[in-house]
């Protein structure tokens, strides 16, 4: 294959990464934006989503699509409920103090991860995709008789991967509508801009916090259910999404949802392309250095406004 088809392939893989990453990162960004809490356990909520999807797909007999469809609904709800419980029992009692909540969520990370190790075991387990048709992609090449259409071997994608991208876009639109157009979104934005004032206007800030924390975790779980037929469910799978979500949230500007989505697309695509042409480790080194340097020299993020 020439460079061109490779690039198309890398972009497609990158687009799937970007879609899932956008969902996970928006969850993290929402929690940070509204609550000012850096949730280190976010990756573990992602992992829990994948593990629950495996358990449901495995437990429910019948067509793989049945278990998967159930998981799509149940996993985010269960994980969200868990996060709400964690918020009410731990974070609320710390008064949402930024540094202490980080230490507490690190503890939460190990608790969730290790309990999963005890219950689920150290193996990586696959989940069957509900549908998985191979789609070949044509390519144009200049041959002896001018331009002609060819079907290079290995260039293609699956219908499921395209569906993941579409689903992520739909969910992101729903989140945007929730935040911008609904009453509960209005309450959330009011809490974000001034907690004291919101409290004075009779907004139940603590309940809003619990809801936001649950929503953020639920989004991570949803992203994991979408990706689990492509990757596999494993108890350590939360580390990479956590790292990349951090990259995305910080580069996109802390707490800014549109910035987060733009950054997710950017990072997802470049991660895919760098991983295909160089090594995944190098891609991660560059990403972590980028986050560190952005935080040092442009703390408002590449797309954020100054003082925002």
């Amino acid at each position: 294959m020439d460079l061109g088809p490779y690039l198309v392939l890398a972009t497609l893989e990158g687009a799937v990464t970007a879609a899932v990453l956008a969902l996970t990162a928006v969850g993290l960004s929402l929690v940070f934006g509204v609550m000012r809490v850096v949730n280190i356990a976010h990756g573990e909520f992602f992992m829990l989503g994948a593990v629950i999807a495996w358990a449901l797909a495995h437990g429910l007999s019948g067509h793989p699509a049945v278990g998967f469809a159930v998981a799509l609904v149940v996993a985010p709800l269960v994980v969200g409920a868990l996060a709400v419980a964690a918020d009410m029992t731990i974070l609320k009692r710390l008064d949402y103090d930024p540094e202490r909540t980080i230490v507490a969520t690190i503890g939460l990370l190990y608790i969730i991860q290790q309990l999963t190790l005890m219950g689920y075991g150290p193996d990586a387990r696959p989940v069957a995709a509900p549908f998985n048709t191979r789609l070949a992609i044509p390519w144009f090449e200049k041959g002896a008789e001018g331009w002609q259409m060819i079907w290079p071997w290995g260039l293609g994608t699956t219908s499921y991967k395209l569906a993941v991208i579409a689903a992520a876009v739909a969910v992101l639109c729903a989140v945007w509508a929730l935040m911008a157009r609904s009453r509960i979104g209005l309450v959330m934005r009011a809490t974000q801009s001034d907690r004291e004032m919101a409290l004075a206007f009779g907004i139940p800030v603590e309940r809003v916090y619990a809801l936001v924390f649950g929503l953020g975790a639920g989004l991570a779980a949803l992203a994991a259910v979408l990706i689990v037929p492509i990757q596999q469910a494993h108890y350590l799978m939360g580390a990479d999404p956590l790292l990349l979500s951090f990259v995305v949230v910080i580069i996109g500007g802390l707490g800014s949802l549109p910035g987060t989505v733009v950054a997710a697309v950017l990072i997802g695509l470049s991660d895919g392309i760098i991983s295909v042409f160089f090594s995944p480790t190098l891609a991660k080194i560059l990403a972590t250095l980028l986050v560190g340097l952005v935080l040092v020299f442009r703390p408002q993020g590449l797309f954020g406004k100054r003082g925002g």
């Binding site: 731990i90 009692r93 710390l94 202490r100 230490v103 507490a104 690190i106 503890g107 939460l108 990370l109 190990y110 608790i111 969730i112 991860q113 290790q114 309990l115 190790l117 005890m118 150290p122």
Partner: peptide
């Protein structure tokens, strides 16, 4: 158990909550 880091997690959460 092999999940010994669980102890570390529980201690971290308990410390931040009860004995900073």
């Amino acid at each position: 158990t092999t999940a010994y880091m669980l102890i570390a997690g529980v201690v971290l959460v308990a410390l931040t909550l009860f004995a900073p």
